[in-house]
């Protein structure tokens, strides 16, 4: 009797959430898979099944390749810039946990992560501005010629990488700090008694011990960088006095196909490619983690 009541409660309690979850997650994910093998041009009434035709066309589309290339460069650029910096900065912050400025370190590194994307991107747009920006002014002090940061194809990618890394750093640092706090102290004591210097114990103890954290942060950073959009939207759009070169990224290309070219099925196939990339990255993370678990 009591058991039955509990079961009824469990069902009644979880049902509304499940219904919402089903409707706003499961259905759209199923739909994106279904749409990717259909031709649907929004204006037309019928959606014929066309198999992998969307994907075939996608892989021959130079705009898609440009988007994929740019997005990959941005994602891996952010990874390479963020992870090593986060490691060093979090090691230093952890070392100075007792400092009276410790709160300031954590807060200042984290603020860019919570600052609204668009205002933050605008701040950087001004910094990178070729004519008026402080970056060129700063470089000018060393006799470096002003650069067209947001207009040159290579430099505009670098600008986006810097902006995204600046935003991603705080998250990585916080996660690493949790990792450092969970490391066993005795290990460092032993290393110190054996005469290891601080940089040595960072390199030979902390880094290997933090490998699971590094993997996790790397995948999170990569996945969110593969979804880059707002930053590009702001940095690379034209505004008065600041010409921008449009940098095509996957989400931008996808939205353009769906809402400007009205090719929803085609855009869906692009979303499926994005999903595949994310799944592969996650799979790699799990495989590497399991390997590590098997060895120890």
């Amino acid at each position: 009797m009591l058991k039955r009541k509990r079961l009824l409660f469990a069902i009644a309690a979880i049902l509304p959430t499940l219904a919402i979850f089903f409707w706003v997650r499961i259905i759209p994910i199923g739909e994106i898979l279904r749409l990717s093998v259909h031709k649907w041009d929004l204006l037309s009434r019928n959606k014929p099944f066309i198999g992998l035709e969307n994907f075939r066309e996608l892989f021959a589309d130079h705009l898609f390749w440009e988007a994929l290339r740019n997005t990959s460069i941005i994602a891996f650029g952010v990874l390479l810039l963020t992870i090593p910096t986060a490691m060093v900065i979090s090691a230093l912050i952890y070392h100075r946990t007792k400092s009276r400025f410790a709160g300031f370190y954590e807060t200042s590194v984290f603020i860019p992560h919570v600052a609204s994307l668009v205002p933050a991107a605008m701040a950087w747009k001004w910094i990178f501005d070729a004519r008026l920006g402080p970056l060129n002014a700063f470089l000018g002090m060393f006799g470096i010629q002003p650069q067209a940061w947001l207009f040159d194809p290579t430099l505009s990618l670098i600008s986006i990488i810097i902006l995204c890394s600046w935003q991603a750093l705080g998250y990585a640092v916080i996660i690493y700090l949790v990792g450092f706090k969970n490391l066993p102290n005795s290990l460092f004591e032993a290393a110190r008694l054996d005469g290891a210097s601080a940089p040595q114990s960072f390199w030979f103890i902390s880094m290997p011990m933090l490998k699971p954290i590094t993997l996790y942060v790397s995948v999170v950073t990569l996945v969110s960088a593969f979804n880059v959009y707002a930053q590009v939207f702001v940095l690379a759009s034209d505004a008065q006095g600041a010409p921008g070169r449009q940098v095509r990224v996957l989400v931008l290309d996808m939205l353009e196909n769906a809402f400007r070219n009205y090719r929803v099925g085609y855009a869906a196939s692009e979303a499926v490619v994005l999903l595949a990339i994310v799944l592969v990255l996650t799979f790699i993370q799990f495989t590497l983690l399991r390997e590590k678990g098997a060895r120890s």
Binding site: R25, P28, E31, S224, A271, V278
Partner: peptide, 11 residues
């Protein structure tokens, strides 16, 4: 694991 951007068009 699935990013929001992947399924926002059907949604």
């Amino acid at each position: 694991i699935v990013p929001f951007e992947v399924y926002m068009i059907p949604l």
